[in-house]
Design a protein around this nucleic acid. Structure first.
Lengths: 219, 219
DNA sequence: CTCAATCTAGCACAGCTGTGCTAGATTAGC
DNA sequence: GCTAATCTAGCACAGCTGTGCTAGATTGAG
């Protein structure tokens, strides 16, 4: 029995074709025929690996989330190492905050590759209203970002950069919303939001955490 | 010459049909035939008032933006009046911040009507990648929200609730991003973000503005 | 009444869609 | 060479799409 094709590889290749079409012309153009053309395969071949269009789209989204997730995780591990080192070497200098900043910057579409990914991801998210499986994938990805926010804030707190009076859950939600909003703005109007501005914005946010927060109306 | 139909009214009626379909089944289902069915009109009648599907969709989006904008403006004028009153009556009590809070809450999808509007709006926004006219409408709406953020922050600053050391443009972007992110979260997982949480989150944010901000790494 | 503006209804067409399905090409194991 | 698993290619079908277009209904103005 001839086994000539690496299924995982072929499926990934087709997912990439979906990404390219979506980035160029929108998800609506990622029809079975369109993907086949883009991947230079016949319609039948595509359908040999994905019997349904939904299956193809969902796979393409999951693969994209995994790709983004892998990069973020890799970046995060680097930054966490930096932070631990910073703690020992020179905690006063605020290296912990810098590490947290770097970690958050990892989550934003600040270079072309990330921009493209985020663009395609956004197109998938829009489909979540019509496809419950895609909605689940979206939620999963969302939870990942939220975990990252939680870790970042907990690290900052551990090193004394978050005032004890602050409600951590509120701060997680606030940071998460800030990042999602920033992402949207970076995609919609990249010119208005240069890197330096984003950096200053996030530093402003992080430094604010060190000060005592609002406590239920008492001062 | 018989003028039996109020064109503006009929067009608005069709726009509403587009909204309903989009909310229920997604924008993809808002075909000419679908809208005609939803509005209980014939295909030909729909096309008498909108010669093209794009025209109908764009009109529906513009009408939605106007509707949302009107409510926000009305709410804002109320709140601004409150704030001015609060200034005279009792500035110490932080009524200005409360007014700002109320104004910002007006921007978020916190009741069912607003939720529905925001949901439909989001579907339109997703179409911005494929339709440059819709992209312009989106940008226009975006600018409106940003203006609202600017006004809110300038009012707060006027009443001494924003530290002088803060860069107002950064704070505008930060607040705007926070609101957009919050909106996304309220739509995607309403259960996780009850009203009280949102309120506390925004109060936290607003109170932070009163403290000196991060200044280019000094302190 | 007549006339003509206004509106309704929907046919017709070309073009696209996803998917069921078959026919054949390719090739590893025997 | 034979067999059978694997893969390619794409036809066929029903169903949807937007839009050009025509035919007729309705009704106010003269």
């Amino acid at each position: 029995m001839p086994v000539r094709i690496d299924h995982a590889e072929r499926r990934f290749l087709l997912a990439q074709a979906v990404w390219r079409i979506t980035l160029r012309d929108g998800l609506r153009e990622a029809s079975v025929r369109g993907v086949a053309r883009e991947a230079e395969l016949s319609m039948g071949s595509v359908r040999y690996f994905f019997s349904t269009q939904d299956e193809l789209r969902r796979f393409a989204m999951r693969e994209l989330i995994d790709k983004i997730g892998r990069r973020i995780t890799a970046g995060a591990e680097l930054r966490i190492a930096d932070a631990r080192e910073g703690r020992v070497v020179d905690a006063r200098e605020g290296r912990v905050v810098e590490a947290a900043l770097a970690l958050l910057l990892e989550l934003l579409p600040l270079d072309e590759e990330r921009r493209n990914e985020a663009c395609v991801y956004q197109a998938f998210v829009a489909e979540a209203a019509n496809d419950s499986v895609i909605a689940e994938l979206r939620q999963e990805a969302d939870d990942g970002v939220r975990q990252q926010c939680r870790h970042t804030l907990e690290s900052l707190a551990e090193f004394g950069h978050v005032a004890a009076s602050r409600a951590i859950d509120i701060e997680i939600e606030r940071l998460h919303a800030l990042l999602d909003g920033l992402t949207a703005h970076l995609l919609a109007r990249p010119a208005d939001t240069p890197f330096a501005r984003v950096e200053e914005l996030l530093l402003t946010h992080l430094y604010d955490l060190g000060k005592p927060g609002y406590r239920g109306g008492h001062q």
